[in-house]
Simulated scan of single mutants.
Amino acid sequence: MSASIYDDCPELLRSFLFYMETIKGRSPNTISGYYVDLRLFFRFLKRYRNLVPQNTPLEEINIDDVDAALLRSVTLSDVYEFMHFLSADRQNNARTRCRKSSSLKVFFHYLTTKVNVLENNPIKELEVPNSKKSLPKYLSLEESVTLLSQVEGDNKERDYCILTLFLNCGMRLSELVGINLGDIKEDSIKVTGKGNKERIIYLNDACVAALNDYLPVRLSKSPKDRQALFISRNGNRINKRRVEQIVTENLKKCGLDGMGYSAHKLRHTAATLMYQHGHVDIRALKEILGHVNIGTTEIYTHVSNEQLKKAADASPLAHVQKKSRK
């Protein structure tokens, strides 16, 4: 955790962020989110409690003096006032308010159970705003096949392998660019996910074939980064931005550009196709995707209208009809 970024952190917030990063293994983006959310709450609290002049812009309110005494005084009503402020003054939607509520709940749980600053958690009963989860956008099976069939160019073996791993394994963009040659076994790849957690992803025949086509090309080169599986034209480990460009370029070739698809949507595609067509158990899918909570994986249990129609037609009473009277 870079100290310079969090110079205005009070000691308790700094220790919380350090704990979440080093002990809980949260990603830098998650740590930054906690910081931003809690900083806003502290600024609001100081103004709400008249600890600073009311006309002081939020961005100018210093939080480095927030101490245990102030945090012990926080009530559930204070937090609901904060939620109202987010909705009315800042026009935050339910999803944003839900995230900020979650940050507060994690922080006050830490104060209560890890450092014993609080005897009782004042926001334990905080109700999180209802945030309807949108269905993940994904390519259909036919679109996925079309995407793979259109890969051409000087780096076609590399690009085809990248797309194949995305569409079959559901790995994250950061996981894909981080793969080293030594991570590859005969039928598996070791990837490093969020919080530096490693997991093994098993490879199907399509992935093995794509790797077998690409590896001779890769091993014929002497790049600057000798460990990286995927390398750029300059011999460096390929970066996330270049992979995103590769995905966009190939989507455009087959007429799928401008539809909201991206490298991350290929991860959604892999998960959805596994669930809908491969009938993969939701618990197995959780492990494949590297999710911490199964609730995250459940967004892939959505069903298409076609599946609903098939389910209705599959009823054993589907063909039982009332006999007409003569």
Rank of each mutant, 00 (worst) to 15 (best):
D154G: 07
C161T: 15
M171Y: 11
N168Q: 12
E142G: 00
L165E: 01
M171R: 07
L147N: 02
C169F: 12
T164V: 07
G153T: 14
N168H: 13
S144E: 07
L141S: 09
V145L: 10
S144C: 12
L148N: 05
E152Y: 11
T164N: 07
E157K: 12
D159M: 05
Y160L: 15
T164I: 11
V151W: 10
E152I: 13
Y160E: 10
V151S: 06
G153Y: 14
S149K: 14
I162A: 01
G153R: 13
N155M: 14
Q150T: 14
Q150G: 05
E142T: 10
E157L: 15
T146M: 12
E142M: 04
E142W: 01
L167D: 02
L165N: 03
E142S: 11
M171D: 03
F166T: 05
V145D: 07
N155Q: 15
D159E: 09
C169I: 02
E152R: 15
C169E: 09
R158D: 12
L141P: 00
S144H: 00
E157M: 13
N168G: 12
V151N: 06
N155P: 03
L163G: 00
C169L: 13
G153I: 13
L163C: 04
L163W: 09
N168I: 08
R158G: 09
C161F: 01
T164R: 09
E152G: 00
Y160W: 10
F166D: 01
C169R: 00
V145H: 04
S149Y: 12
L163R: 03
E152H: 12
L141E: 10
D159C: 08
G153A: 10
C169H: 05
E142F: 00
L141N: 06
L163P: 01
S149P: 04
M171Q: 07
S144F: 00
S149N: 14
E142Y: 02
D154S: 14
N155I: 01
M171P: 03
I162T: 07
G170V: 03
R158C: 10
T146C: 05
C169S: 14
E143V: 03
L147I: 03
V151P: 14
D154L: 13
E143W: 09
M171F: 07
S149Q: 11
L147W: 09
